[in-house]
Design a protein around this nucleic acid. Structure first.
Length: 390
DNA sequence: CTGGGGATGGGGCCC
DNA sequence: CGGGCCCCATCCCCA
């Protein structure tokens, strides 16, 4: 069967993200010859073409069952099968390209993970197409510890197993490969058997609290906790709990790295606004698309919480009340402005006549309307330097 | 004109 | 990376 490359938008839940399919893996149910239904699962031959470290999506209860939900790694695809078909536990894998059996026909049909995914990175050499069994024989779906919650990265977990190291926590919240870490095996647990596939079951990947011992019993170590990793900036030694935090710091904040790298800018195509991050630009684009619509009056807003505040104008809800006069407000900012009216010391003062104002806008008006001591130019906008905060 | 309330926009930060 | 939240700013309106 020739490899085909297909761009398919129709089944992509995100609609805009094409999925490339290259090969099919045909999986035949092995131990029930009377039921030779061939289960076709479309897999990506070369997972790293789709799963760049930044685009890996971890299975969630929301849509773990669809092979087209970008979870089309062999792992996820097999996971999809086992969950969908609780009766099917045993598989053989047949290469559709060569028509040959590519998995050992061990009675349990489980395989060790392909080296292609070791450490979550693809190797330069493409591996044979293989799939994995996650649930051991006889285990009911409800017992399946690889149910897709909490979020679990099959790449990280199996990568660790394959390296004979303690697996990564399924609950680990940072899915990026850069964040992966490993720990050495516990002393009272020997390293993993050379080939997990020869053992009775290939259990679903344990959490970081668990160790696989030689008897394949997963032991939970409640004492030993892997400390959360810190990501340190090599330039200023500031550390961050997430890799993305460090990246942001390096890109935009690190004074030591100033000038080390070109600062990226992201421009809006609908207007001339430019932003330092894609996220900021995306946020701005919402001000054009206004995706949040009020169901009562139809007015549209750029962000959900803006709509929320607007809906309060319909309902009359005022959750923010002044502790001094108990007057209630629908918006926290307006309460804050109101609180200024209770303060003897006004926050904003004119540097020229020393008159104070509760709000910046009032000081602005004061200057624009002609502070007795200042010459206001009609062409010069009011500058922040014209006032002093108290 | 001034002061204040109401409504909304947008950047930044944290999770 | 996105959502939620916070904070600041601004505009409009009214007393």
């Amino acid at each position: 069967m020739p490899a085909t490359v297909e761009t398919n938008y129709s089944k992509c839940p995100l609609k805009k993200r094409p999925i490339k399919f290259e090969d099919e893996v045909v999986v035949v149910k092995k131990d029930e010859p009377e039921n030779l239904s061939v289960k076709k699962v479309i897999l990506d031959k070369n997972a790293n073409e789709i799963h760049t470290p930044s685009t890996v999506i971890v299975p969630t209860p929301t849509y773990p069952m669809h092979p087209w939900n970008l979870h089309n790694s062999p792992y996820i695809a097999e996971f999809y099968r086992t969950i969908q078909n609780p009766a099917v536990h045993h598989y053989q894998q047949i290469s559709p390209m060569r028509g040959e059996l590519i998995s050992p026909s061990s009675s349990e049909g489980s395989l060790s993970p392909p080296p292609h995914y070791i450490n979550g990175r693809s190797s330069s050499v493409s591996p044979p197409i293989r799939t994995e069994i996650y649930r051991p024989i006889g285990m009911r779906p409800s017992e399946h510890r690889f149910m897709p919650y909490p979020p679990y990265s099959p790449f990280t977990g199996f990568a660790a197993l394959n390296n004979h190291q303690a697996p990564i926590s399924p609950a680990y919240s940072d899915y990026s490969f850069s964040s992966m870490r490993s720990v050495t095996p516990e002393s009272n647990c020997s390293s993993l058997p050379e080939d997990l596939s020869l053992k009775q079951s290939s259990l679903s990947p344990p959490s970081s609290d668990e160790k696989i011992c030689e008897d394949n019993i997963i032991k939970v170590n409640t004492k030993e906790k892997v400390p959360p990793p810190r990501y340190q900036c090599p330039d200023c030694n500031k550390s961050y709990s997430t890799f993305s935090g460090l990246t942001k710091h390096q890109q935009f904040h690190c004074p030591a790295a100033e000038g080390n790298q070109a600062k990226k800018s992201f421009s809006c195509k609908d207007c001339d606004k430019t932003y330092v991050s894609l996220g900021a630009l995306k946020m701005h684009i919402r001000t054009h698309t206004l995706p949040c619509k009020c169901t009562i009056c139809g007015k549209a807003f750029s962000r959900p919480w803006l709509l929320q505040g607007h809906i309060r104008t319909h309902t009359g809800e005022k959750p923010f009340s002044c502790q001094h006069c108990h007057r209630a407000f629908a918006d926290r900012s307006n309460l804050r402005a109101h609180l200024q009216t209770h303060s003897d010391i006004k926050k904003y003062s004119c540097t020229t006549c020393s008159k104070t104002f509760s709000r910046m806008s009032l000081l602005t008006k004061h200057n624009e309307s002609g502070c007795p001591g200042v010459q206001v130019s009609s062409t010069t906008p009011y500058s922040m330097q014209n006032y002093q905060e108290q």
